[in-house]
């Protein structure tokens, strides 16, 4: 594993933990898109089905189990435990407009027409757009808590670092996975606007708020 991949995985883990911790500590999921979190739970579930079929490494298995568990815990906190604080009116992104096309694309464009491979492909495509309900929610309310922006930054950083990981792997291992690379590029691009706001506002101590 190269340095980019290593930092990326821990950045991803940090994002997940930051979100869980924020909701748990504040006893509230205000400003968090439950829809994005459900999509991430679907992403992890469909991608890590290989936990049942193959063992790659202790690291690989542990991270997968942690990601899946935290993801379901987050969904549980939002829709069950702290349901009263969930801002459903502002979480109005129509997820079927993401899931249906992404499902179709996964059936059409994949490495191998096999169940596990198609579900893996579906998870890669879905992950690339899963943050859209959250970004939509922020654009609708015009603001985000600073801790939420740290979450988004770690999540965006994770995918940006995976791009460097793939460049590294292409040069040193001759490895590349076109599906992951294209979806990863799309995913990273979606964060660019947010990265700009994060650097120009949040890192200078200001709250992230959008012009009306």
């Amino acid at each position: 594993m190269n340095i980019f991949r290593g930092i990326a995985d821990f950045s991803h883990l940090a994002a997940i933990i930051i979100l869980l911790h924020k909701i748990w500590k504040s006893r509230s999921c205000a400003g968090i898109s439950g829809k994005s979190q459900i999509l991430f739970a679907i992403v992890f579930t469909t991608r890590y089905l290989d936990l049942l079929t193959s063992f790659i490494s202790l690291y690989n298995t542990s991270m997968k189990v942690i990601y899946i568990s935290c993801s379901y815990a987050t969904v549980y906190l939002i829709y069950m435990k702290f349901r009263a604080t969930y801002d459903g009116n502002h979480d109005s992104f129509r997820v079927e407009f993401l899931v249906v096309p992404v499902g179709g694309l996964a059936v059409l464009i994949n490495h191998d027409f096999a169940l596990l491979e198609i579900l893996w492909t579906f998870s890669i495509y879905l992950e690339s757009v899963a943050i859209l309900p959250q970004l939509f929610m922020i654009s609708k309310t015009g603001e985000a808590e600073t801790i939420t922006t740290h979450y988004l930054f770690c999540l965006g950083l994770y995918r940006a670092l995976y791009l460097f990981n793939w460049i590294w792997r292409f040069y040193f291992e001759g490895f590349f996975d076109m599906i992951a690379i294209v979806a990863g590029l799309v995913q990273t691009v979606l964060y660019c606007d947010f990265f700009y706001l994060y650097v120009t506002k949040v890192l200078k101590g200001k709250k992230l708020s959008l012009p009306a």
């Binding site: 096999a114 596990l116 893996w120 996975d177």
Partner: peptide, 10 residues
């Protein structure tokens, strides 16, 4: 489920 399915990335 497929037997030869192996992805090392997360």
């Amino acid at each position: 489920l497929d037997d030869d399915f192996e992805k090392d990335e997360l």
